[in-house]
Design a protein around this nucleic acid. Structure first.
Lengths: 199, 199
DNA sequence: GAGTCCCCCAACCACAACGTTGGGGTTGCA
DNA sequence: TGCAACCCCAACGTTGTGGTTGGGGGACTC
């Protein structure tokens, strides 16, 4: 039987993504990753070095993925509501990234891995908002970076503290109808935040 | 020499709060807590059972603390901006709670510890908003629970993903001037979210 | 078909972390 | 003063986990 080393790597990565997103770096064991991938533990060390390096590789993959997936809204006819809605949708359908980012945020101790790769992704958003402010479509009551940040907050917070969602709204987050309602609220809120009336 | 068992308990709790907030449940070792508290490890097991029970006790303490600290705004003359500002201030001066909540959110798997104790704290806020909506001070474009949730999001997100703040705004979060600027943005954003113009 | 490279895996090692235990010191009470 | 209860701590047992190793055996080359 022929070997499929590429598939072995891929399966390890997929399993690792699941585990890391679910349990964080500390909460994940190498054994569980290997078992989930149906691959021997040693392969993991052989291909990726150690647990932390695998984690970095996973995070990098996910970041590339979202950078490709979320289109940048054009400056002129920017509908901030829909932008926030799309961010919400992305998180909703790709919960891994959001969770990895949150784990990272908590473990954050001053240095950001892959910073030079990631920063442009954010500054592009800020520039777009800045341009829209000049064009008059978006309020200039708020600093563009702050506005961008808070728009993301509106969309992402739901996935960060599901237990608070549960206690506040009674929604469990499993129901698609709940998600739709949440998304609608995010869109409205984003518009109120960014656009001056009349809306 | 007399024993001060109450102080021993307190020192363990304080040390545990620091460690858990910094490293989460999995990232914290009992030994480190004990060392930080200058207390023998065995005391921890004697007083609190085990690591998880200690964690629950800590979380409970912090929740009680914020419930006492953040006053409920009265329905009529509610300034949502200042409310969000105060939530921001609380998180700013007590970063432990936000981090504990966040760790919990990531580990959340369906059951909420101390739920019956915590829920009233949130529903009270929702009720206050609902009342203000009826009184006409707050928009009814948004569901009160959703609005409450997103107001908290605006205030708390800064402390959840500091690495994103860093990349978006260039602020490190250590500088009080940065915090003041962030707070101002939160207040403005909260007003835009909740109050109908003219503001 | 011999030699070589590489993939794979079971078993193993070292250590760190949770949790326990037995004994010694201290207090309060009879 | 004797005694029981309680506080404290150093040392230990046990388990789980990160990381390694040595060998078995396909696949390709000549």
């Amino acid at each position: 039987m022929a070997w499929d080393t590429e598939q072995t790597r891929r399966r390890l990565k997929e399993a690792a993504t699941e585990e890391f997103a679910a349990n964080g770096l500390n909460g994940t064991t190498v054994e569980r990753i290997a078992r989930r991938a149906s691959v021997n533990k040693e392969r993991l060390y052989h291909y990726f070095g150690d647990k932390e390096q695998l984690y970095a590789a996973i995070l990098n993959d996910e970041l590339v993925r979202i950078a490709e997936a979320v289109q940048l809204p054009s400056a002129e006819d920017m509908d901030v509501g829909e932008f926030a809605g799309r961010v919400f949708d992305y998180h909703s359908s790709h919960p891994h990234l959001a969770r990895l980012l949150h784990w990272e945020g908590l473990s954050y101790a001053g240095k950001i891995p892959l910073q030079e790769k990631r920063t442009p992704y954010y500054t592009a958003k800020v520039d777009a908002i800045k341009a829209a402010q000049r064009a008059g479509g978006i309020t200039d009551e708020l600093d563009p970076a702050d506005l961008a940040f808070m728009l993301i907050a509106l969309a992402a917070w739901w996935f960060a503290v599901p237990q608070v969602v549960q206690m506040l709204t009674g929604q469990t987050g499993d129901d698609p109808a709940d998600r739709a309602k949440q998304r609608a609220a995010v869109v409205i809120a984003a518009r109120r935040l960014a656009h001056d009336p009349p809306r």
